[in-house]
Amino acid sequence: MRGSTVLPGTPCADPRAGDPPVHRLELRLPDDVPFAVGSLDALGPLSRASFPHRHTFYEIVHVTAGTGAHVVDLDRWELRPPHLAVIAPGRLHHWEGARGLEGTAVLFTEDFLLDQPGDRELLRRLGERPWLTLDAPAHARTARLLAELAEEYGHGSAGFATVLRSLLRVLLVRTARLPGPGPGAPAGRPGAVAEEFGRLIARTGEEYRSVREYAALIGVTPGHLTAAVRAATGRTPAELLREQRTREAQRLLIGTELTIRQVASRVGFDDPAYFCRFFRREVGRSPGDFRKHHDGRVPSLEGGAARP
Rank of each mutant, 00 (worst) to 15 (best):
R2C: 05
G3H: 08
P8D: 09
D14H: 13
G18L: 10
D19A: 15
P21E: 02
E26A: 05
F35H: 14
V37M: 01
G38C: 07
S39F: 04
L40A: 07
G44F: 04
S47N: 10
S50K: 02
F51R: 12
F57R: 03
Y58V: 10
V63C: 13
A65Y: 10
T67R: 13
D73W: 00
L74N: 05
R76E: 15
W77H: 15
W77R: 06
E78G: 08
L79H: 09
R80C: 00
H83M: 14
A85M: 14
A85V: 11
V86C: 14
V86H: 01
I87T: 14
P89F: 10
P89S: 07
P89E: 02
L92R: 05
H93I: 07
G118H: 09
G118Y: 07
R120P: 00
E121S: 00
L123G: 11
R124N: 03
L126C: 01
G127T: 01
D135N: 14
P137E: 04
A140N: 13
R144Y: 04
A147N: 07
A147L: 08
Y153G: 00
V163D: 06
L164P: 03
R165Y: 03
L167H: 08
L168M: 09
A176T: 05
R177C: 06
L178F: 08
G180N: 01
G184I: 06
G184C: 03
A192C: 04
R199H: 11
L200Y: 03
A202Q: 06
R203K: 13
E206W: 15
E207A: 12
A215Q: 05
I218A: 01
I218C: 05
V220L: 01
P222M: 04
P222I: 11
P222E: 06
H224W: 07
H224E: 06
T226N: 10
A232S: 12
T233F: 03
G234P: 03
R235M: 12
R235T: 07
A238F: 08
L240I: 11
L240A: 09
L240S: 05
L241I: 15
L241N: 08
R242I: 04
Q244S: 14
R245I: 03
E257V: 12
L258G: 03
T259Y: 13
R261W: 07
R261E: 15
V267M: 01
G268F: 09
D271M: 03
P272C: 09
F275P: 00
C276W: 08
R277K: 14
F279L: 07
F279I: 11
D289M: 11
F290I: 09
R291K: 10
V298T: 14
P299M: 03
G304Q: 07
